[in-house]
Amino acid sequence: MKRFTRILALVLALAAITAVMSAETAYTFRTSKEERVVTENGEFTADLIVDPVLITSIGQSADVSMLDALMKKVGATYTFDPIAPAEEVAKYKTVIIASGASSKGLGAAGISQEQETARAEAIMKTVEENEITVILAHLGGPGRRGALSDTFSDMVLGKFTDFAAEKEIPITLLATIADAMTVLKDLFAPVAQ
């Protein structure tokens, strides 16, 4: 009975330790009904964009398709290649990378997680060597913030408001995906001749 009680106490203690949860720092939303597009740490202006422009994905989530639809809508001129290798990226001056992991997307593209990680590393090396402008687009919302998605976002630039504040680079936050039209129009819409 004594031994049994000791075992019981040990198990309960282990259970208590295992059950301790860490609290996360709460995030403050920047956008609101009145302010649907909020830019911090500077401005996004059209002169940031240098042709030719490439849209690609890191993680192969469906968000790159949404970005493609947005860009088509604003009438932008760009190339769309979700699985562009680093050598292909090197041919462009501006790259918009939609980050977000999807096992279905990776499977459909015939890419493993490891291959996508290697591709991401190679792309980021290329953009640095060639001084290519990179825009990180995360359009999947909270649902696309799993461990792998976050890893991919970190590989491109970093996660999001904290990184932008630390590096003092502009970040635009959107209330909904359709609000991206406003920003993309300013950046990419063809100028009337």
Partner: peptide, 17 residues
């Protein structure tokens, strides 16, 4: 009783890990 308690703890171990 004693086997019951041990079995519950056994099940709990699988739940915890």
């Amino acid at each position: 009783i004693a086997p019951f308690v041990l079995m519950v703890l056994f099940g709990l171990a699988l739940l915890l890990w």
